[in-house]
Simulated assay, not measured.
Amino acid sequence: MRHWTEELDDDADQPLVRPYTITGGRTTAGRDDLTLITLITALPVVGADPAADRQALQPEHRTVLRLCAHGPVAVAEIAAELDLPVSVTKILIGDLIDAGRVRARPPLAFAQNGNLPDMTILEAVRNGLRGL
């Protein structure tokens, strides 16, 4: 008699941890302000023990912080880098927002702070696309 697991494909590319395990069983984000284009920025840690902080965070949380350390990153880009569904990524980002580790801003708010891209670059991209 064969065991039911013998027919499963043992693919090393598949994650061993299911998304519901990463999120502690949560299936929806507790926030409705996170969209695919919401920009996430890491905040500096004040007065925390770095070793204790690393132990308190899951590897996925640490990856989000690493991705956002050098500037704003869209939720969609974070999900792609984590190779996780956007819904799971939103839950992880919500955890970090609640812990005061990241800040979420809509892209328009970021642009209104004077952080607009150079117009010559945008025009060059536009002209290049028109040339295709």
Rank of each mutant, 00 (worst) to 15 (best):
D13Y: 05
D13A: 04
D13H: 03
D13L: 05
D13E: 15
Q14M: 05
Q14R: 14
Q14C: 05
Q14T: 04
Q14A: 11
Q14H: 09
Q14E: 02
Q14K: 15
P15F: 00
P15H: 03
P15L: 01
L16V: 07
L16R: 08
L16Q: 09
V17F: 10
V17K: 14
V17I: 15
R18Q: 11
R18A: 06
R18K: 10
R18Y: 07
P19Y: 09
P19T: 10
P19A: 05
P19E: 04
P19V: 06
Y20A: 12
Y20P: 03
Y20I: 10
Y20Q: 14
Y20S: 13
I22Q: 00
I22R: 01
I22D: 01
I22W: 00
I22E: 00
T23S: 10
T23G: 02
T23M: 03
T23H: 03
T23F: 03
T23C: 03
T23Y: 04
T23W: 01
G24T: 13
G24L: 15
G24C: 15
G24W: 04
G25W: 04
G25Y: 03
G25K: 13
R26K: 14
R26H: 06
R26G: 02
T27C: 04
T27G: 06
T27M: 11
T27E: 12
T27P: 00
T28I: 01
T28Q: 12
T28M: 01
T28H: 08
T28W: 01
A29Q: 00
A29F: 08
A29M: 06
A29I: 04
G30S: 11
G30D: 10
G30K: 10
G30Q: 13
G30P: 01
G30N: 08
R31A: 07
R31C: 06
R31G: 07
R31Y: 13
D32V: 12
D33L: 06
D33Q: 06
L34R: 07
L34F: 10
L34G: 08
L34D: 05
L34H: 07
T35R: 00
T35K: 00
T35G: 08
T35W: 02
T35I: 00
L36N: 14
L36W: 02
L36H: 12
L36V: 13
L36E: 14
L36G: 15
L36Y: 10
I37V: 13
I37R: 14
I37H: 10
I37S: 12
I37G: 02
I37T: 15
I37L: 11
T38S: 14
T38F: 01
T38K: 06
L39T: 07
L39K: 02
L39C: 06
L39G: 03
L39D: 02
L39S: 01
I40E: 08
I40A: 11
I40G: 14
I40V: 15
T41C: 07
T41G: 09
A42N: 10
A42C: 05
A42H: 06
A42F: 02
A42Q: 15
L43Q: 12
L43H: 06
L43A: 10
L43C: 11
L43S: 07
L43R: 11
L43T: 04
L43G: 03
P44E: 13
P44A: 09
P44D: 14
P44N: 07
V45N: 02
V45P: 00
V45T: 11
V45S: 08
V46D: 14
V46T: 13
V46Y: 06
V46L: 08
V46I: 09
G47I: 00
G47V: 00
G47K: 00
G47F: 02
G47C: 01
